[in-house]
Computed example of a mutant assay.
Amino acid sequence: MAIAHSVLDFQSYSTDALNAEKIQLIESSVAQFGAPLLLLDCDAIRQQYRALQQALPTVTLHFALKPLPHPAVVRTLMAEGACFDLATTGEVELVQQLGVEPERTIHTHPIKRDSDIREALAYGTRVFVVDNLNELEKFRRYCDEVELLVRLSFRNSEAFADLSKKFGCSIEQAMMIITMAKEWNIRIKGLSFHVGSQTANPQKYVDAIHACAALMQQVVEAGLPALSTLDIGGGFPVSYNSKVMPIELFCQPINAALKTLPETMQVLAEPGRFIVAPAMTSIASVMGSAERDGQIWYYLDDGIYGSFIGLIFDDAKYPLHTLKHSSEYFASVLSGPTCDSIDVIAENILLPRLDNGDLVIAKMMGAYTSATATDFNFFKRAHTVVLNEEVVDQERLLG
């Protein structure tokens, strides 16, 4: 099975979106490091973080490491004053090694082994998430050390990944958890939710915020300790080959809903994809070509089992470009390097005639690419080259 794309206007695959400076950077990077490559631009991380921070001014942003757990990303966001959302012991170890203060972290995986809890506590993380009584009971022995968020489920069929299918509880179940926590002397700090990945409609956040506010009132009326924190999760959308709402407009109704909460309410968010997706550019080279069924197949040195693995499980149709200009274009297929027939990046696209060694560029490659790539068939993963990380120190000195 191949990942099929319809024939597109080659303007989507032209050099127009790559200026001369970018092209020179791409060519010099390949000359120095070879291909395949991933160029990680820390400037783009700063821009995305600041844009979301400005769009959600009353919200503390905890970057979710999952889509791109790269040390340069963590260091860049540390310098921006960001906090971090951790989900595994491996992520705890990464931020600990890089010197992130544990007070700037939360641990949001709803299901954890006791060893995961102990490792996070040893590091200094104190805020965890639960969504069922079995999970709550794991914290009885740590009741003096932790504060918990109860994760609610808000199903979202419009999202690419409806995370509430796997995690989260109902309002009724949340009340049971909060009631039992009081019996067990476990402090419930607040509520959390995640409306789903690549959520295009901000009303999903608004509805969830209002439902959480109602539950918080219900908690008070039941004589249980008042809740002080709401975590609105991630899911903020980015543009791949189709446009999404600008983030400042997207967040306007969310901000309006947050204003209905008590002024003392602490609000958190867990952005991942939004911060890192635009920060990485993929560079692959043509290994060989063949004509099959009226199309030219180009075999690249990166593919579905490598940086393009998101084409299998993620809602990411990466914008593609070549560095060649031509007056004639041909129906083409871009294939990955492995011996598996599923390893196809794009079919039925119009490209100029490419030669061995020519480069194919993909943008918006920061989220769920290098983090999920494999070494299948013993093709090595793309090497990551970090750009503009040193600007952090210069900015601080100038400031």
Rank of each mutant, 00 (worst) to 15 (best):
A362F: 09
D358Q: 11
A367G: 03
R353S: 14
E347Y: 08
P352K: 08
M364C: 10
R353D: 05
H325S: 13
I349N: 09
M364E: 15
T338R: 10
T322C: 15
I345F: 09
H325E: 14
G357Y: 01
D355S: 15
I345K: 03
M364H: 04
Y329R: 07
D343P: 02
H325G: 03
T322Q: 02
L311Q: 05
A316P: 02
G310T: 03
A316K: 00
R353C: 12
P352Q: 08
L320V: 09
Y329S: 10
L359W: 05
V344M: 03
Y329T: 12
K317D: 14
H321T: 01
K317G: 04
I345R: 00
M365Q: 06
Y318P: 06
T322M: 10
I309Q: 07
E347P: 06
S335I: 04
G357T: 09
K317E: 14
S341V: 13
C339R: 15
A362T: 07
P352A: 11
V333L: 04
M364L: 07
Y318A: 05
L351R: 05
Y318C: 03
A316I: 05
L320F: 03
V344Y: 04
S332F: 06
S341Q: 12
K317S: 12
N348W: 10
L354S: 07
I345T: 03
A362V: 01
I349R: 06
D358N: 11
I349W: 08
L351N: 03
Y318F: 15
A346N: 05
D315A: 11
